[in-house]
C-alpha cells in the first residue's frame, strides 16, 4: 500500500486541534508549554465549550498564550491571574474560566493570590506549568528550583542555607478546604500526555459540576534554561524533578489521596 492511499481524510486519526490559532508557537523547540496548550485546547474542543470559555494568561513565557489559544482571553498583572479569574467567574458564573500560569508567576509573586483563591474555593481551573526556573527572563532561580540545581543566579547550585528550600505549592494548596481536585502530571512521554489530558478534562468537568477549584500542575522541561537538548532535558527531569515532585493525584473529589 502506497502512502498516498493511506493519507486520505477518512483515515485521519490525529490532527492539531482547531481551537489553537494558526500562529507558530513562540516557545523554544521541545518546550512542554506547546503540549500543555494543545491539551487544554483539545479538552475545550471535546467538551464543545470554545465559545463559553475565558482564559487568563499570566506573565512569563506563557504571556503570549492568548495569541495561540482561540478562546476569549485576558492577560493579568504578574501573579494576579487567579484574582482576575475570580472576578471573571463571579461576574459570569456560567462561563468556564481557567488560568494558565508558570511557576515564577503562580508560586513566587502570585503566592498570596493563589493560596487565597484556593482557600476560597473559587470555581475555576488553574493550569500550573512548573519547570523550576524563570524561563522567560533568562533562567534565574525560582522558588521551585531544586536544591543543587544550577541556574543563572545560582551558578554553583541552590543551597538551602542561603537561598531557602524549593516550594511544593501543589501539596500546599491540597491542604486547603477550597480545592476539590489537585494533581501533578507531566507531558514528556505519550503515556504522560494522555494522563495529563484526562486530568485537565476532569478539571473542566468539575467546573461544570460547580465542585470548587481544580489545580493541575504540569512538571515541564525548560531545555533552554537548563542548557540541555530537549531529549536530555526530559531525561534530567525524570531523574531529578520527579523524585522531588512526584507525579499523580494529590486530592481527588475533595479528599486527600493517601500514599
Amino acid at each position: 500500500m502506497e502512502l498516498k492511499d493511506i493519507i486520505k481524510p477518512e483515515n485521519l486519526v490525529y490532527k492539531r486541534t482547531e481551537c489553537l490559532t494558526d500562529k507558530v508557537l513562540s516557545y523554544c523547540p521541545g518546550c512542554g508549554h506547546g503540549t500543555a496548550h494543545r491539551l487544554v485546547m483539545e479538552t475545550i474542543e471535546e467538551l464543545g465549550i470554545q465559545s463559553e470559555t475565558i482564559g487568563v494568561a499570566s506573565v512569563g513565557c506563557s504571556v503570549l498564550s492568548y495569541d495561540f489559544m482561540d478562546v476569549d482571553m485576558t492577560g493579568a498583572a504578574h501573579g494576579r491571574a487567579t484574582a482576575v479569574a475570580t472576578g471573571i467567574k463571579r461576574c459570569n458564573p456560567e462561563k468556564y474560566v481557567f488560568t494558565y500560569q508558570g511557576d515564577g508567576d503562580l508560586a513566587a509573586i502570585g503566592t498570596a493570590e493563589t493560596i487565597h483563591a484556593c482557600n476560597r474555593g473559587e470555581n475555576i481551573t488553574i493550569i500550573f506549568i512548573n519547570n523550576g526556573i524563570y524561563g522567560m527572563t533568562g533562567g534565574q532561580m525560582a522558588p521551585t528550583t531544586l536544591l543543587g540545581m544550577k541556574s543563572s543566579t545560582t551558578p554553583y547550585g541552590r543551597e538551602s542555607a542561603l537561598m531557602g528550600n524549593p516550594i511544593k505549592i501543589t501539596e500546599l494548596v491540597a491542604q486547603l478546604p477550597g480545592t476539590y481536585f489537585v494533581t501533578r502530571q507531566s507531558v514528556h512521554t505519550p503515556a504522560n500526555v494522555r494522563k495529563a489530558k484526562k486530568a485537565i478534562m476532569k478539571a473542566f468537568d468539575n467546573q461544570k459540576l460547580k465542585k470548587g477549584l481544580s489545580f493541575v500542575e504540569i512538571v515541564s522541561n525548560c531545555n533552554s534554561g537548563w542548557k540541555m537538548t530537549p531529549v536530555t532535558a526530559n531525561k534530567w527531569m525524570e531523574d531529578n524533578m520527579f523524585p522531588f515532585y512526584p507525579l499523580g493525584d494529590i486530592k481527588v473529589d475533595g479528599e486527600l489521596v493517601k500514599k
Binding site: K8, L12, Y14, Y27, P29, R38, P190, R194
Partner: peptide, 18 residues
C-alpha cells in the same frame, strides 16, 4: 499509533491509519 503527534509540542504531525 499517534505517539509522535501526541508528544509533539508544536502540533506539527497529522496521523492517518488504515
Amino acid at each position: 499509533c499517534t505517539n509522535c503527534a501526541v508528544v509533539c509540542p508544536d502540533g506539527v504531525l497529522t496521523v492517518y491509519r488504515v
